[in-house]
């Protein structure tokens, strides 16, 4: 193929970041983005907490809105016990949200598009909520896999189904986030690549025709902004749901 080609997946390849130190410690470019996300969150809190005003300024209002949003999500979904898990859910939510958002900027790495990252997060949520279930109910938590009000002869069929659906939670949780972020970024890259291919192949007419993929990318940018917020919310609310199951067993 002559001229430029579309390398839609190159944006996901891992390199080391932070110069020689990163090379020595295997600190990757995705870790750079994670660090940036964490630093942005902490800086937002630092600015928002500077005044502690009765009538908040912009940054304080932003931090308060985030706090109340996640806090309400925890209490509404898990119940009063949700307050104990609130810092954890907030950390996960803000980390994924900031990761999704800064991944939308050029030259920033979208670490939530890596299945290893999302699977690690999902496995942590899975193991943690299962641990909470056993911690709260002891071995009685195993009754969670026995659906209520079902005739006994169906149980040998239903219990394996329940267990399989429970075990598939981390898979669906991680693949949902990973696939959404990957798909969006690949689409972007592909349409941008179309613009180069059109210009290289058709000259001036191709450059004018490139306005179509450019417009599509503008629309995609809006969609990706929505997806970035939505997927972070979905991850957090499912975390809350799993914790609810662990605490209440139904």
């Amino acid at each position: 193929m002559a001229g430029p080609s579309i390398d839609a997946l190159g944006q996901f390849s891992l390199t080391t970041g932070l110069g020689p130190i990163g090379r020595a410690l295997n600190f990757t470019n995705s870790n750079e983005a994670m660090l940036a996300a964490a630093v942005i969150i902490v800086v937002l809190f630092a600015i928002g907490l500077k005044a502690k005003a009765l009538v908040p300024g912009r940054i304080q209002a932003l931090v308060e809105v985030l706090y109340e949003f996640v806090h309400r999500m925890c209490v509404d979904t898990i119940g009063e016990e949700g307050k104990r898990f609130f810092p954890l859910v907030f950390t996960i939510f803000s980390f994924i949200l900031l990761g999704n958002l800064i991944g939308l900027f050029p030259y920033f790495f979208a670490f939530t598009s890596h299945i290893a990252v999302t699977l690690a997060l999902a496995l942590f949520v899975f193991v943690f909520s299962t641990g909470v279930g056993f911690y709260t109910h002891g071995f009685g938590f195993l009754k969670f896999f026995v659906p209520e009000g079902v005739p006994g002869w169906l149980l040998p069929l239903l219990i394996p189904i329940e267990i399989i659906s429970y075990l598939s939670r981390p898979v669906s949780l991680s693949v949902r986030l990973f696939a959404n972020m990957t798909a969006g970024h690949v689409m972007w890259e592909v349409f941008a690549g179309f613009m180069l291919l059109l210009t290289a192949g058709l000259g001036v007419f191709g450059a004018i025709a490139s306005i179509v993929p450019l417009g599509l990318n503008v629309a995609l940018a809006a969609l990706e902004l929505l997806v970035a917020g939505l997927q972070a919310y979905v991850f957090a609310i499912l975390t809350c749901l799993y914790l609810h199951d662990a605490v209440h067993m139904h």
Partner: peptide
Amino acid sequence: DQVSWMAVILVVLYLVLA
């Protein structure tokens, strides 16, 4: 390796936030 570093970053972030 990015996952191990993520664990470090997340633990620090959790402690700072909580």
